[in-house]
């Protein structure tokens, strides 16, 4: 019978689900590997939202503490671990931002997210490198007003009512801009996946 036994330097080489399964069993080595794998992604996202290195670090640390505590409830069938950990980071960052108010969230600071000159994107399981470029193109193709609304909601955690106030537009217009923007980003991905 033809079988192979591979040697790998683990748990660094384990897939995300296996790392999380090991973390759920209290395996600190797996936890360390997980932190190393996602630290820069989590910190980068937190920094975009809260805009302050110290706060971003607090948010990032709490993100990993929650990943460790809730590793057992992660369900790979519901989506890749990247999405799971970045969603936790975003929620914590937005909660932190809300506590910091009235520090205003400035969508102009997010220009590098969609500008073609944006730095190299990390290899990603949830959204591949090419798909990431498509998402950037989709963001760039939105009207400036639509893009500001979408970025305010995504990275600033602002509701349509808050966006309406900040942009001096009707709430209905803010709702439409968020929805159309998000669907356009999604459509860019779907377009790619079509054979």
């Amino acid at each position: 019978m033809n079988w192979t036994v591979r040697r790998a330097s683990l748990p660094g080489g384990l897939p995300d689900e296996a790392l999380l399964a090991a973390m759920a069993h209290g395996d600190a080595d797996a936890g360390a590997a997980f932190v190393r794998r996602y630290a820069a992604r989590v910190y980068g996202l937190a920094l975009k939202v809260v805009g302050d290195p110290g706060l971003a670090e607090d948010v990032s640390q709490e993100t990993f503490v929650r990943c460790w505590r809730h590793a057992a409830v992660y369900d790979p069938r519901r989506g890749p671990a990247t999405t799971w950990v970045l969603t936790i980071a975003r929620n914590l960052a937005i909660d932190t931002l809300r506590l910091q108010r009235p520090i205003p969230f400035d969508p102009a600071l997010l220009v590098e997210l969609w500008a073609p000159a944006a730095g190299p994107a990390p290899e990603d399981e949830a959204v591949g490198r090419d798909a990431l470029a498509e998402v950037r193109v989709a963001l760039g193709s939105l009207s400036p007003a639509q893009r500001r609304a979408l970025l305010r909601a995504t990275f600033g955690g602002q509701s349509a009512a808050e966006i309406a106030e900040a942009e001096a537009i009707p709430v209905g217009t803010a709702k439409t801009r968020i929805r159309a923007g998000l669907l356009k980003v999604r459509a860019a991905l779907a377009e790619r996946e079509r054979p």
């Binding site: 932190v35 820069a40 996202l45 999405t83 990390p122």
Partner: peptide, 25 residues
């Protein structure tokens, strides 16, 4: 769409000692 947008944020290395502080926590 939101999941894809979250991946657009560029990765930034956290300050030195970050991993150690997380592990200690």
């Amino acid at each position: 769409g939101l999941d894809a947008l979250l991946c657009v944020a560029p990765a930034v290395e956290p300050p030195a000692g970050f991993e150690a502080r997380v592990l200690a926590a």
